[in-house]
């Protein structure tokens, strides 16, 4: 679907490599899940083994603040 909603997008810009598969991570579809809520996002993903990378800035920023908000639901 062309118009599918993504809450957040992180583009690896070719700077990240999957150590197991030896190939670059690409922008791929992923989903964050917490306390019965799901958020479709686009994150750096290994096209072969499916490793999904969550960068530090994202984990400590947006992810943390959404966690706090959901905990109060």
């Amino acid at each position: 679907m062309a118009n599918e909603r993504n809450y957040y997008t992180v583009d690896p810009e070719g700077k990240l490599q999957c150590m197991k598969c030896g190939i670059p991570l690409v922008k791929g579809k992923a989903k964050f899940m917490y306390l019965d809520n799901g958020f479709p996002v686009e994150l750096p993903v290994c096209p072969r083994c499916g490793f999904v990378y969550v960068p530090e800035e994202l984990a400590l920023g947006k992810v943390a603040s959404v966690e706090r908000a959901l905990e109060d639901k």
Partner: peptide, 15 residues
Amino acid sequence: HSAYSHRMQVVRRNG
């Protein structure tokens, strides 16, 4: 060099 964590689970999705 650094460590961080999040409580959310992250999974790949298809489509």
